[in-house]
Structure formats: structure tokens, C-alpha cells
Amino acid sequence: MEQFLSLFFFIDKLPAWVLAAGMRWGIDMACLCALPNFFNLILHFIIGGIIVIMLMQYGIRKNFFLPLLLLGIMFSGVSKFIDWIQNMLTATGNTVFFSYNLDLLVEALQFIGIAIIFYYIFRSLFASKPSLTKPSNL
């Protein structure tokens, strides 16, 4: 089991100066704790931005496809933000930070977010052929 874990957690194998740099600056090169979460958070901002631009371009449709998609990405984004905070506390602290309650909150928010996103994308994909699509299908 230890060998299996060491595949995932190579933090102990890193030189001390790399660990020290990670903890000092929170740049997170030491344990890759929060860096991937940070990229995910940025992606959520980019997607949210694209949806806002599309909202301005196409306007709010009858069945609120874009606003609800934005709501979904906001839920997912908040969950990723909390996840990032958890991992950042590990990156900048002296020990691994993990809270079961925060983990529950992260998963619950993610569940709500993706449920909204998947439902509305599915609905859009299930709409009739593009040539026959009515405006209300958006």
C-alpha cells in the first residue's frame, strides 16, 4: 500500500529546498496540492466569462438555457474554490489539511453544479435537427 501511495504522493521524495519554497511562497511546486485546483478555478472563470459574453450576444431565451448554465458553473466554481482553499492550506502549512465537512460541501456543490449543466446541455443536444430547431429550443 505504501508503494502504491508513493506513486501518488511524491512529496517526501522532493529536496528540502523545494518543499521550503513551496511552503514559503505558496507556489505549490512542492506537493502539487493547490496548483491543479488553481488551473481548474481559472477554467471556471473563463467558461463563466464565455457564457456571460454569449448572454450579451444572444440574450436570455425563453427557457433560460444560458443563465442556468451560468448558475451551474457558479456552483461548480464555488466548489472548486473551497477545494483550492483546502489544498492551499496544505501547501502553505506544516501538515496536510483535510476536513470531512468541507469535502462534503465541495462534493454537494459540484453535484448540484454538474446536474444543472448536464441537464441543460442534454436538453439542447436532444433538441430536433438544427434546420428544424425553433428559437425556444435554446
Binding site: F9, F10, I11, C31, F98, S124
Partner: peptide, 29 residues
Amino acid sequence: ASLGMHNYFTEFALLVGLAFIFIAMRRRL
């Protein structure tokens, strides 16, 4: 915890997945 390669794998798979899902959504739109 989710650290090191475990976190790297989890988050980047999600990053790629979410990016593809939203590319599909935008194309459809």
C-alpha cells in the same frame, strides 16, 4: 487528502473534461 500525483490527475482530468463539455455546448449553440 488530494496531493501530489493524485491531485494532479484528478484535477487535470476534470479540467480536460469540463473544457470538452463546454466546447460541445458552444458548438451546439
